[in-house]
Design a protein around this nucleic acid. Structure first.
Length: 265
DNA sequence: ATGGTAGTAAAACTA
């Protein structure tokens, strides 16, 4: 059922997991990933829809809060060493519902939902930039470049002009402003590879997020590549492909089919 | 058109 040699990893912003359970189950049936990282579950732990997944033989690790944030990992394998937040003793705000770490089949997983930032002159943007700084510190403290590590999730940053529509009009947007792009680059400089871009250099209009307030955003190509899978050198070496699952009009809403996937040997 | 809608959860917030 699952390829014993290979490992398939996916990330998905659910925007409310309770509304997405049927979609996720159907998607998992078709895609058979070894690990699915989810952001924006928007549900308290006591209300998390466990049984649809456990009855399908899947294991879960999740932490959420009422209405906002929330992260989860779903896997057919044992999910080991689950940790929430940065573990730096700071326990700031909503860290524990934005960051979950685990080890699955010997691969270290960091599933992150980076704060969106609201506006570049809003305090939340400072928080977002600090969040990237803390991610970098987390990498230095708890991980090494020799590990099989994937940092994935909704990082809320489009790294390059090719990664969003109308970049010339988005320079003051919290997901494209120079400071947040620089923060992303510092993760890359630590030694991670933007796996999607490695397999699709210079390929435009490959987006993982479409604002559902914009009519026909998918058809009009009004999207952003803000969800990412970043890998350490040994895991990059094992990677066979990375792609965005887009099957237009198969689902009702843009967010229903923007899974980012990677396959490793 | 600096708009719009989706989800959560019960009026208004985040994205």
């Amino acid at each position: 059922m699952y390829d014993a040699k290979g490992f398939r990893l996916a990330t998905f912003n659910a925007n409310g997991i309770r509304a997405r359970v049927p979609i996720i189950l159907r998607w998992l049936e078709k895609n058979r990933v070894d690990c699915l990282c989810i952001q924006e579950t928007k549900v308290q732990d006591q209300d998390f829809p466990e049984s649809p997944f456990t009855e399908a033989g899947l294991n879960l690790a999740y932490r959420g809060q009422k209405a906002y944030n929330g992260v989860a990992i779903i896997s057919p394998h044992e999910i080991r060493e689950v940790k929430f937040g940065f573990g730096d003793g700071k326990h700031l705000d909503d860290d524990e519902t934005r960051l979950v770490r685990a080890s699955i089949q010997g691969i270290e997983i960091i599933n992150a939902y980076v704060p969106q930032g609201r506006a570049i002159d809003h305090p939340n943007y400072e928080k977002k930039l600090r969040w990237f700084q803390r991610l970098k510190e987390l990498l230095s403290r708890d991980y090494s470049l020799e590990m099989d590590l994937a940092l994935c999730g909704d990082l809320n940053v489009a790294p390059e002009p090719i990664d969003l529509y109308a970049p010339e009009r988005k320079e003051d947007h919290v997901c494209y402003h120079r400071a947040v792009r620089q923060a992303f680059q510092e993760l890359i400089e630590w030694g991670l590879t933007d796996l999607f871009r490695r397999f699709h250099p210079d390929e435009p209009k490959q987006y993982t997020y479409y604002d559902y307030r914009i009519p026909k955003a998918v058809d009009r190509g009004l999207g952003w590549r803000i969800d990412h899978i970043l890998t350490t050198p040994p895991l990059t070496g094992r990677a066979r492909d990375c792609w965005i699952d887009m099957e237009p009009r198969r689902w009702e809403k843009p967010s229903d089919h923007t899974f980012l996937m990677a396959e490793f040997e």
